[in-house]
């Protein structure tokens, strides 16, 4: 270990953030050929595997990126292999090229965008309406015991009810229009948001609030001036996670009763044995989920730069 840590070459290979644990060995640097190449390679390889499999240790960014791509290449490779060999019937698993062709065709006809837009609209309306109420109410609930005491029994009852069990009721009450799907999403995420946001508010250090009081903050200002900014990073994380759930409930709602949306075309495609369309719809939802997730991460960095 002493040898490897003083070798300039092995030192850079180790990739540690701090490489200051050994002074560069002047002798080795002056006469590199003094050390047999074999030994150096040996040392370097050993330290490389040790580095890459160090618990919680860092890995080079380029390697991280390559590994991220590798998993997709592997999946695509297996997919191509099993579909082109006829191992799997195309009626169950289409060729990747088939999915791409269908996607391009539906994109050109506008059908893909129409249904994507329909889904995005429902998710956004449901999510925004739910969040607009859940954030202030959750913060208030977490801050004021009296509000919590009032709402907790109801919220904790409702949030364990599976949303899906309410779908028939919603259809009966509000039909199968967009309102019904929005209602499913709101019902699915609102109570979860409320509970998590209230928890975040409750975990604001008491002395932070005390300090604010001694600086002239009035009690009625506590939520707006202290609890809200203090929990903002948490709240944005909660919103990001529940946005993912909103997509799940959207598909549930669309599968049951809808005339448009990605869930709806999946269901239609199932009836017509168009597996490629189902794959397209799933991929589209995945992409949209990824986009919203990344948007929230960017938003968090911009809105809460202190918490990164």
């Amino acid at each position: 270990m002493t040898i490897s840590s003083t070798l300039p070459s092995s030192k850079s290979e180790r990739g540690h953030g701090k490489d200051g644990q050994g002074r560069p060995d002047a002798r080795a640097a002056a006469t590199p050929q003094a050390r047999p190449a074999l030994t150096e390679n040996h040392v370097r390889q050993k330290s490389l595997t040790r580095t890459l499999f160090t618990p919680f240790g860092p890995i080079p960014p380029a390697l991280a990126a390559a590994l991220g791509i590798a998993i997709w290449v592997a999946i695509l490779g297996i997919w191509i292999a099993v579909t082109h060999n006829g191992l799997v019937e195309p009626i169950f698993l289409p060729k990747p090229s088939q999915v791409v062709e269908t996607t391009v065709a539906l994109a050109q006809s506008g059908e893909l965008w129409e249904h994507t837009l329909a889904s995005v609209k429902v998710v956004l309306i449901g999510f925004v309406v739910s969040s607009l109420v859940a954030v202030p109410l959750g913060l208030t609930m977490g801050t004021y015991r009296i509000v919590q005491a009032f709402l907790d029994p109801l919220v904790n009852f409702i949030r364990y009810l599976p949303v899906t069990s309410f779908v028939p009721l919603f259809i009966l009450w509000i039909g199968i229009g967009i309102e019904q799907r929005v209602a499913v999403i709101i019902f699915g995420i609102f109570f979860q948001q409320l509970v998590m946001i209230a928890d975040a508010a409750r975990s604001v250090p008491r002395d932070l609030v005390n300090a604010a009081y001694t600086l002239g903050t009035r009690r009625v200002e506590t939520v707006r001036h202290i609890v809200f900014p203090a929990t903002l990073p948490n709240v944005l994380d909660i919103l990001r996670v529940t946005m993912g759930w909103a997509w799940t409930y959207l598909v549930v709602a669309e599968l049951v009763a809808a005339r448009s949306g990605l869930g709806y075309i999946s269901l239609k495609a199932m009836r017509g044995f168009q597996v490629d369309v189902i794959f397209m719809a799933i991929a589209m939802i995945g992409v949209l989920g990824l986009l919203t997730d990344q948007s929230f991460r960017v938003l968090r960095r911009l809105a809460a730069p202190w918490a990164s």
Binding site: D207, L208, A211, Y213, T214, W306, A307
Partner: peptide, 19 residues
């Protein structure tokens, strides 16, 4: 009740992290 006429420095770190 608390007021701005009595400033306090706490043992715990109480700076507002968002400011």
């Amino acid at each position: 009740e608390p007021g701005a006429d009595r400033g306090m420095v706490f043992q715990a770190y109480t700076l507002f992290p968002w400011l």
